[in-house]
């Protein structure tokens, strides 16, 4: 019952976590200061754990292959991540704004999933939320600091990054053919409701950061749809090749 819908939902969550984890890990050794290097690396490690635990639910309860096989052997058309997480790290302002917009959405999603009728998912959501709280705390602190408490340059760079990332962020909420079924079964409230709660969560923080939230109505949000159906940006497949390099040489390698 609802297996296809649950598979699709958990794969979307896990793929987003896996890909943003890999992108965040690209800051290891390159952070603008040591603490930020450590922060992005730690957040990457947390999210990699989240992806693994989600794939593990699919493996244990829904007959999917083990997490390593799922993570390392699929090609881009089999991934269900959104475009926002695929993009290269860009400059620090872009990575920070992406981290904020993405993790705020994760917070809203896992808050809803705590009540999910899929019990292992609800249990994991309670656990993951405690970690996302730290991610969001970190993101908010820096967005407000660089937006409102920095200088003209930091404000301008944050606003420019927000203008670039915001349309992509709307792509996170690409409607799913399973939205109605998931909501009816009490599994997940659906992307429309999650997007609304997300906007309510980010708006006051951006206001505090004196950053202008682009108008949702004026953006053609479908531009960045497609990820949930396997249509991706040109950045994903090269990243997957790099991520799976060791696994493809030797699937049994201990590393």
């Amino acid at each position: 019952m609802n297996d296809a819908a649950i598979n699709d939902l958990i794969t979307r969550l896990a793929d987003d976590a896996l890909i943003i984890a890999h992108r965040n890990s690209e800051w290891t050794g390159l952070g603008p200061m040591l603490e930020e290097d450590i922060a992005f690396s730690s957040i990457a490690q947390d999210k990699l754990g989240h992806a693994q635990a989600l794939y593990n639910i699919l493996h244990t309860n829904f007959g999917q292959p083990d997490p390593d096989t799922v993570a390392f052997t699929r090609n881009e058309a089999q991934f269900r991540c959104c475009h926002l997480v695929e993009l290269p790290i860009g400059d620090y302002a872009f990575s920070l704004i992406r981290h904020f917009l993405h993790d705020a959405a994760e917070w809203v999603r896992y808050e809803a999933l705590e009540q999910s009728t899929v019990v292992p998912l609800a249990q994991l959501a309670r656990k993951i939320k405690g970690e996302i709280k730290y991610h969001l705390f970190h993101a908010k602190t820096w967005v407000v600091q660089l937006g409102a408490q920095g200088n003209e340059e930091s404000h301008a760079r944050m606003q420019s990054a927000l203008n670039e990332a915001f349309p992509l962020a709307l792509g996170m909420f690409e409607p799913s053919e399973f939205d109605g079924e998931l909501a009816a079964a009490g599994i997940y409230p659906g992307e429309g409701q999650v997007q609304q709660r997300w906007l309510e969560l980010i708006a006051p923080v951006l206001e505090q950061a004196t950053l202008q939230l682009p108008s949702v109505e004026e953006i053609d949000r479908s531009v960045h749809y497609g990820g949930r159906k396997g249509y991706h940006t040109t950045h994903l497949q090269p990243m997957l090749n790099e991520m799976a390099e060791v696994y493809r040489i030797d699937p049994a390698a201990e590393w």
Partner: peptide
């Protein structure tokens, strides 16, 4: 200094 430290469970 940072809510993230040398291991996932530590802050600085």
């Amino acid at each position: 200094h940072s809510p993230f430290g040398p291991t996932l469970c530590r802050s600085l």
